[in-house]
Amino acid sequence: MESTNQQHIWQVLQTVHDPEIPVLSIVDMGIVRAVEINSTEVIITITPTYSGCPAMDMISMQIRMALLEAGYKNIVLKQILSPAWTTDWITQEGKDQLKAYGIAAPVGKSADAIFLTELTIECPQCNSTKTELVSQFGSTACKALYKCNDCKEPFDYFKCH
């Protein structure tokens, strides 16, 4: 059973955004794994999207700031790696927000298919499926760069991971 305080902390965390994708809260992104409160500390457990994600240090700092502003003290941030973050952790609301922002959301479930397979990606601008992969690595490690052959717009695809 979550305490009122815990629910309040989750609400505060909803206001913290990924610096690379400012429309998405870290909760919808699926990187907050646990919120615990004991007699002396507030413990937030987060998981990185990618091992080398440079946003993690900044996100940790923002979580601390947001909770301090909301009146919490003795905030402890823990990082865990397992179970590994996958795009399945992004909430449906998060996926809708990604699309509205112009980033195609990951298609389907993350699979352990050996060496990945080609997918049909829908253009977030005009919904055409006539799209083409430009590069498997886009503006950040978590995105690939595509272009739409109908509306001619390039776009980022949040790749399955």
Partner: peptide
């Protein structure tokens, strides 16, 4: 070690393909 490997494997899969 298992957790680091699990995390890294997802990234390495893309490196192999690229």
């Amino acid at each position: 070690i298992g957790a680091i490997a699990e995390k890294s494997l997802k990234e390495v899969t893309y490196h192999v393909r690229w």
